[in-house]
Amino acid sequence: MAITFSKDELKNENELKNEKGRSNMSISLDQIDLIMKRTNATYTEAKDALERSNGDIVEALALLEKEGKATRRTNINTTQEQINTYVDTLKTTHFVLSKDDHDYIHAPLIAVLVATVLCFHVSVIALVIALICGFKIKLTDKITHNVRFSNDDFMKS
């Protein structure tokens, strides 16, 4: 004799099993944080995925990806953003070589660094001669002209 269940009875049975499974498992904040960091999911999305996967992190990640709620974080984007930030800083910072309130060189720091790399020996010799002759070297902000670094500060310490 076979026992048969109606669709509603099966549905209720599955819901009871899910409720039992959820009440027995404990989801920690560390698990939720890990899911959030790996997928850029919100707190509630991460918690819900963990609950549906009975606390299994890998299964929760797979669920979020299937639903399209998870976008993978790539180090390429963050690295590219960091590189762009450094390049922007180099563009907005100016190298100023001055003596007696007269600027002899006022150029973007990135251009000075490229010239230094291409003509290293000449650049170092010119820099040493300029310091011996009493020239002042400053790194300033392009927009506000605030001094970020000056050889006067270096000589005081």
Results as ranks from 00 to 15, higher is better:
residue 143 I to H: 11
residue 119 C to T: 11
residue 152 D to P: 09
residue 106 H to C: 03
residue 125 I to G: 11
residue 116 T to G: 06
residue 147 V to N: 09
residue 156 K to A: 13
residue 152 D to H: 14
residue 42 T to S: 15
residue 56 D to R: 09
residue 85 T to D: 03
residue 89 T to V: 12
residue 130 A to M: 07
residue 49 A to M: 06
residue 76 I to G: 08
residue 151 N to G: 06
residue 35 I to V: 09
residue 136 K to I: 03
residue 6 S to D: 10
residue 115 A to C: 00
residue 92 T to G: 03
residue 57 I to A: 09
residue 19 E to N: 09
residue 121 H to L: 01
residue 61 L to V: 15
residue 93 T to R: 12
residue 81 E to L: 15
residue 152 D to Y: 12
residue 54 N to E: 05
residue 58 V to N: 15
residue 111 A to W: 00
residue 123 S to V: 10
residue 52 R to K: 08
residue 8 D to W: 05
residue 127 L to F: 02
residue 119 C to W: 06
residue 73 R to L: 15
residue 66 K to T: 04
residue 53 S to K: 03
residue 156 K to C: 08
residue 103 D to N: 14
residue 143 I to F: 10
residue 11 K to Y: 02
residue 119 C to N: 13
residue 116 T to F: 05
residue 24 N to E: 10
residue 7 K to S: 08
residue 13 E to T: 13
residue 36 M to K: 02
residue 41 A to G: 10
residue 97 L to N: 10
residue 35 I to H: 04
residue 149 F to G: 01
residue 108 P to C: 03
residue 14 N to Y: 09
residue 100 D to F: 03
residue 106 H to N: 07
residue 99 K to W: 05
residue 97 L to M: 14
residue 106 H to Y: 09
residue 24 N to D: 10
residue 124 V to D: 14
residue 50 L to F: 01
residue 29 L to R: 00
residue 77 N to G: 10
residue 31 Q to N: 07
residue 131 L to S: 13
residue 2 A to M: 05
residue 104 Y to F: 08
residue 27 I to P: 03
residue 89 T to D: 13
residue 66 K to A: 12
residue 35 I to R: 02
residue 120 F to A: 14
residue 29 L to F: 00
residue 20 K to A: 07
residue 141 D to Q: 07
residue 76 I to L: 08
residue 131 L to D: 12
residue 135 F to D: 10
residue 26 S to L: 12
residue 27 I to D: 03
residue 17 K to H: 07
residue 127 L to Q: 00
residue 120 F to H: 15
